[in-house]
Structures are given as structure tokens and as C-alpha cells.
Design a binder for these strands. Sequence first.
DNA 1: TTGTAAGCGTTATCAC
DNA 2: GTGATAACGCTTACAA
Lengths: 330, 330
Amino acid sequence: MTKKATAEDVAQAAGVSKWTVIRAFTPGASISEKSRKRVMEAAEHHNYRPNLLARSLATNLTRQIAVLVDDFKNPHKLPVLEELTWQFQSEGRLVVLININEHFDHVQALLDAGQRQVDAIILFGTGFRPEMLEDVRLKGGAPMYVLARDSQIPDIPAVTCDTPLAMQELGEHFRAKGYERPAFLSGAKTLSTALGRQRAFHTFWQSQGTARVLDLSAASYSSEHGFAAVRQALEVMPREQWPDLLMCENDALAFGAIDYVRSILNLRIPDDIAIAGFDNTPLSASPAYDLTTYEQPMAEMVATLISMILGDAPQESKVSKGRLILRSTA
Amino acid sequence: MTKKATAEDVAQAAGVSKWTVIRAFTPGASISEKSRKRVMEAAEHHNYRPNLLARSLATNLTRQIAVLVDDFKNPHKLPVLEELTWQFQSEGRLVVLININEHFDHVQALLDAGQRQVDAIILFGTGFRPEMLEDVRLKGGAPMYVLARDSQIPDIPAVTCDTPLAMQELGEHFRAKGYERPAFLSGAKTLSTALGRQRAFHTFWQSQGTARVLDLSAASYSSEHGFAAVRQALEVMPREQWPDLLMCENDALAFGAIDYVRSILNLRIPDDIAIAGFDNTPLSASPAYDLTTYEQPMAEMVATLISMILGDAPQESKVSKGRLILRSTA
DNA sequence: TTGTAAGCGTTATCAC
DNA sequence: GTGATAACGCTTACAA
């Protein structure tokens, strides 16, 4: 078996034309049962399968979806990638995973994906700057979608979790617990606006008459930077001004915050300071953290995204309701 | 810009033939500076970029690599995926991420990948059964490679970490610490052989005259199952027979083991029982675990894999040396 | 139901 | 250095 068999080869073996072979492999095509059987036997014998590349060139449909990820430090990405790949595969699509970083930027990735004729592009990360996406060269490429953050671009639909509602649910829980000096730990400053969590957190406390929310900010969305940010902020602050509640923009930051507060400051959580995260990352349930957090309905969000991409749902942003996960840290 | 421009369109605009356009976009092609400039201007104006799909059909090279992953529960996958995608992108390749599970098995995935004409297939997971890979229908497809576990198939090269050496380094450390009742916690029983860690662990202790190594086994490679496996084993065992050292097949299992031992049994680690993992997962460095573990040189292994795939290195299995990471749990 | 012709947008090869 | 012809393996329309 030196070379792959083509429809032509199978046709010859089955004594029909190559178009009949194609028909045998086309679900709804009109073909006699007899021809179909002969073709299938010959195909089996020659180990033939249609070349999807050639099909894509002819149909202008690759059945490939590009997923752009820019933050592999966030453990939450992994279960979502599992969900994405699996749901797409169930629909006969394959996921092309593209790593965005300082050396391979969005523009390059989008152009690359465009050249490969992917059917759709999903932006799944925090650092996509709207200006980039409006690059003229990108017009006319595959349709784009944003997952789990705001789009900030009218034409590009976003599939998100209801962040204001999330912060309200979290906030009401915090209020009931009696916390009075809230602080918010955000990731990379310039990017946080897209998630809208910080804004929603502020909005909630303002609505409760609490004007002052302390803002901390980490250099990126990693545990290490969460750790460093909390240290840096608390070191220079008189202890009596320390917050009694630290809401972190995601679980990764919260893990770092907990590590610092517990291991270095030797404080009790939540008695001395309460800490909450966002994402319900796998490890957040572990007794080592037992983190109070908020879960985005990722399976549902991915399903929504897929129906939009398949054209079964309107091409417009969709907001889903998440779920408060109460554990022991807040 | 309703439709994408083709080489033909650009040719017309530049007043040359489409082959000249192609040449302008082919690195080493012979073309006059003048034509080249005119073509590039027209291309810029028409927002033209070569269609990689058509190129692939003509060259029989997609520059796409399929990566088959079957264990998204292991947090170690994420940094490796980052490394894989990034290194491949640096070489102008893109990664197609394929999720293997009970509904979408290896055979289906391999056939699918084969139909899409990917240039190579990387098996990156624990559960690949050799029988499956020897399926006749798979012959003649893209070349396959195995990452971070044994291949068990002669034709398929594997890129691995030196497991016997790893277990020796770990073992010598354990011996120096004075542990005498070693146990090994493996993941899914049928799959563990491929990693060879359990075998290497036994071999080491046998060489030290310690005949008895207790074997525990979890249902899968997740923290939850690690937790459950340790509970199940220790519950039915008199306390004086408990191991004083638990080597876990990977960090995920170790996290679960630590959670159980510390939170439920209220034992001290490593005084009452020492625990070690494998992989040096991001969170293993956190103070919440501070796990002694062993790091596979993934960046190097991925680089090796890529040079094999690109044909710069011989198509044969390669073993790299890892690194012992000493922390506080053992 | 089946065969034919044209086309998808490139690349490889040869002639000029 | 440039243009032309054939080919990659399939799909879409149309004719038989």
C-alpha cells in the first residue's frame, strides 16, 4: 500500500465511474443498492476513505474550527478545551489549537487561520485587544466568536456568563457573612475590563453603600503573580486597614492569594480574611484550598457557541447564568 | 470584499500571469524584482494570501499535526499543550487537538486525522492500547509518534523521560531519608504499564533488598480517584502496616493522596507518611502541597519530537533525562 | 440511476 | 524570467 487509493482507483476496481464511488460515500445521494454494495466492497479492499482536503477545496468548508488561547497558565483552560474538542468532534468538526503569545500575535494567528480556511475562529483568552481584531487585513476571513469574555466589537458575538449577576450572588453571600472591607484582585490590568468582573464587583458594593473597594492587581492571571500581588499590597499597608474579604478575578489568582495569606502571614481563612475565586477550577474543590468560587456553565456555553457556528442559533451574543459554589474560604 | 482574491485575480491586476504571482509568494523562486514588487502591491491591494488548502492538495503536505489526548483530568497536559502548540507554530505547523474518550476512540480519531491528511500524529495520553494502533485500516496513514510514554510498537517511535533513572533518583532520596515501607499508587491498572513507573519503582526497591512494595491502584489518573484509592486501601489495613512512603504515578494522584492523608486522617506529611508525585505540575510548587516530584524535560522532549517529525532527527525512540524536584512532602 | 464536463486554487514541470 | 499545460481529489451541475 504505497499510495493512498482515490475514488478513481475504487471506481476502476468496482467497474463504475468515480462519481458513483463519490455517491456511495455521500449520505443522501441517489445510487442503486447494488452499485453501492460493489463500491463499498472495493473501497474496503483498497482501504479507501475520501480525502477531506480535496473535499474542502471543492466545498469551501474545512470543518475545522480554530481556537485561539492566550493564557495556558490558567488551569481552567484544560476542562474547557476538553469540552470544546469533544462537542465539536461530536458534530464532525475538529479543533485547531492556536497558542497566542508575544511572539505569535493575534493578527498573525488570524491570518494563518484564514489562509487555512477554517470555518470559524474562537477567541478564548483574556488578552485580545479590540484594535487588533479590527485590522483591515482580517476582514473577509472566517467568522469570529468570543468565549467567556466580552467581545467589545459589535460584529463579533460573545458567549459569556452573567457577570453582574455572579458578583451580586457572591456579594450578597459576602454581605450576609458580614464582611465590610472588600478588596478585588485583578489580573493583568489592561485586560481585566474585558471580563467585567472587577467592574461588576464595584457596582455591587456601591449599590450597598460601600464606597471603598480596595483594588489589587497582579501582573498576569497566574497563581505566582496572585501571590506576589497580595504580598506587595499588604506589606506596605497597616494591618488595621487590611481587607477582610479578597475577591479574586479567577481561581488561579485565588490559589496564590491563599498560599500567601496562609503560609506566609499565617492568617486563618476565612476568619482573618476571606478569599473567593472565579471559575471553579478542578483543584478548587480540594481540601487543600476548598475555595468558594463561581462556576461558569461551560458545557452550556460551548453548546451555545457551537449552535451559533453551525448556524442553528442567531449570530448574537448570549449570556448564561452561572452558579455560586460555596466552600470554606468565604 | 465579498469573495477571497485568488492568484488569478492578483495576476490580472498586476498584468502578469498567475504563475508569476505564485512565484512572488514562493521564497526561493526566480522572479524579477520588478514583477515581484508589482505583484506584491496588487496582492496588498486585493488583500490576497495564498490558499493553504489548495497548496496542501497540490503538495500533499498540510503542515498540520494531530495531537491525540485522552486524559484531560491531568493538569500536566496544559503546559505540555502550550509547549507543543508553541514549538510547532514556530516551525510553521499548526496543532489539531483531538479528544479521545469512550465515544470517540483512537481508531476513529486516527482515521479522521488520516482523511484530513495531517502530516503526523502524536499520541499524548496514557490509554492507547497497542492492539488498536495495529488496526490494518490505519496502515499507510500519517506517521505516528508517542509522547511521554512507551510506544510498545516497534514502528512507532516514542519520546520519553528516563523512568528507571527517575525512580532510582527518587528511590535513593527515599532511602537516604530512611523510609522502609514503600507503596506505589498507580492510575488505571491496565494502562500503567505503558508509563513503566510502577515497574521501575519495584525494580529499584528489589535492588535494595526490599521485597515488599505495597501496590495501590486508582480508577483513573485524577485527584479524586487518588483520594478514593488511598482511603479504600488504608481503611481496611491495620495502622501498623501502613506504608511510610507513598510514591504516586503522577502529581494529580499525589494531590488526592495528600488531601486524604492530611484532611481526613490528620496525619503529618512527611513525618507520618511521605508522599511523592511525578510531572512537576504547576500547582505542585504551591505551599498548599509543596510536593516532592520528578520533572520530565518536556520542552526538550517536544523539541526532539519536532525534529523527528520534520525529518531532522532519526525516526527512533529517544530517552531524555529528567530532574528530581525536592520539596517538603518526601 | 449513472456518466460527463467544469471547476476549486494551488504546485510541478516544461517550453519559450 | 515568464507563460502554458497538467495534476492534486474531490463536488456541483447537467446530460444521458
